[in-house]
Amino acid sequence: MSLSAADVEKVALLARLILTPAELESMTAELGQIVTYVDQLAEVDTEGVEPMAHAVELHNVTKDDAVAASLSRDAALAGAPKHNDEGYLVPAVLGD
């Protein structure tokens, strides 16, 4: 299946990416090529086959509901590009 530049722009927004016009052009061609290759999966008869999400199937892995040591707030904030003593700082979400 071929992809249009508009399809690719829509996916870029969903993926929270911005493509330059040159990137949009090459990405449209490359994704189209890869998706066409992947389309061969359609020829496999998977009727009645259960999807396999994990290589070793484990169920209901639980652990004790106990308090354990975790990262301190300072350590968790240390890698943030912008933060104050209490949290992460981001551009205004609602208006200016």
């Binding site: 992947v38 999966l41 359609a42 496999v44 998977t46 086959v49 259960e50 999807p51 396999m52 999400a53």
Partner: peptide, 11 residues
């Protein structure tokens, strides 16, 4: 795509 691939994965 995704669901189909998970089924082929099992095969």
């Amino acid at each position: 795509y995704y669901l189909k691939a998970l089924k082929v994965r099992r095969m």
